[in-house]
């Protein structure tokens, strides 16, 4: 049912694109030349990247830019060939969602950089240590997401209470940024909320469950809320809390906040078992990618003043029962 809907919306977008193309072409003629951009995606077999593509396509249509989309099917060798093809077609800008942050660097350096085409990294960073040049990276703002978690928590607990923090894989950038955003904001806006346990559960549901069981043992009747760096850990913690029958010190339900807005978490929020999650905006990511590419072509001066590989954060947003 869901995939039917998805296919339907893809078809709708395509139909819209066809309808809008003539419009785009005419407005493009107002400028001297119609721009062509290449968008190389790691996979289109994932709703997240389908949304990136749709957002980019819609923005390209609005701006009268021709967008060539390739799907690497998660294969680095296919993506390398895709990018070479796009360079051959002399696209004006390349938006690359890398299958492999280090692996894709070679073709960028030898093909795209050699042809002088500006390259933007979408979602995943591209490794520039071996000499590949990337103008900018457009990706979700995980620090801001962590901040939103703290803001929601502060509101839900009215500034007072004990929270358990479940961290992601130690050392991963998503884990580090989400933790930093959450902890900094909590310290700033809610000094009355105390982190009474802070443990890592590797973004994993089974580990989230086991770690939460253990934390519940050590903190009986003390926990008001759980904030997890992704939804899988939040759902694991939910299971532990339900099975233990654990409650807040005042007898209420323990507040649970996740990150990523996966389908299972949205269902749990809708059912009233979870409270909030943070949603990325892949469509906006695609849109901003096209905008950045256009800026790099029409106003190269703008980027010349920024460090190469400049990070452009895409805002994320809080999702609660009211949004579902």
């Amino acid at each position: 049912m869901k995939s039917l809907l998805l296919k339907g919306s893809v078809l709708l977008m395509l139909a819209l694109a066809v309808l809008l193309l003539p419009l785009g072409a005419t407005s493009g003629q107002a400028q001297s030349k119609t721009l062509t951009f290449g968008l190389s995606l790691s996979t289109l077999n994932n709703p997240f990247f389908v949304s990136v593509q749709q957002g980019a396509q819609a923005e390209a249509d609005t701006l009268g830019i021709k967008l060539i989309v390739t799907d690497a099917q998660n294969s680095l060798s296919k993506q390398t060939a895709d990018i070479q093809d796009l360079v051959q077609k002399k696209v004006d800008a390349l938006l690359i969602n890398a299958t492999d942050s280090a692996g894709v660097a070679a073709v960028i350096k030898n093909s795209a950089n050699a042809a002088g085409i500006p390259v933007f990294a979408i979602d995943r960073a591209i490794d520039t240590s071996t000499g590949a040049k990337v103008v900018g990276q457009i990706a979700s703002d995980n620090i801001f997401g962590g901040k939103l978690q703290a803001d929601f928590l502060n509101q839900a607990l009215k500034g007072q209470g004990n929270v358990v923090e479940l961290e992601g894989i130690p050392g991963s950038s998503a884990a580090i940024d989400r933790k930093k955003g959450f902890e900094d904001e909590l310290a700033a806006v809610a000094p009355g909320i105390k982190i009474i346990a802070d443990q890592e559960a590797s973004f994993d549901q089974a580990k989230g469950l086991a770690v939460m069981q253990n934390i519940l043992q050590a903190n009986p009747n003390k926990i008001d809320a759980v904030v997890a760096a992704n939804d899988s850990m939040a759902l694991g913690a939910l299971k532990a809390i339900q099975q233990a029958g654990a409650k807040r010190p005042d007898g209420g339900r323990i507040i649970i906040i996740g990150f990523d807005a996966i389908a299972d978490a949205k269902a749990a929020i809708k059912a009233g078992n979870m409270d909030a999650t943070i949603e990325q905006q892949p469509s906006l990511m695609g849109q901003l990618g096209v905008d950045a590419g256009r800026l790099a072509v029409t106003d190269p001066l703008f980027f010349s003043k920024l460090p190469s590989g400049q990070f452009f954060p895409v805002p994320v947003k809080t999702v609660t029962a009211a949004d579902l």
């Binding site: 009474i196 802070d198 253990n214 934390i215």
Partner: peptide
Amino acid sequence: ANGMNLLNIQAY
């Protein structure tokens, strides 16, 4: 693993 959770030892 359980003991380190109970004692709230830092991940690293």
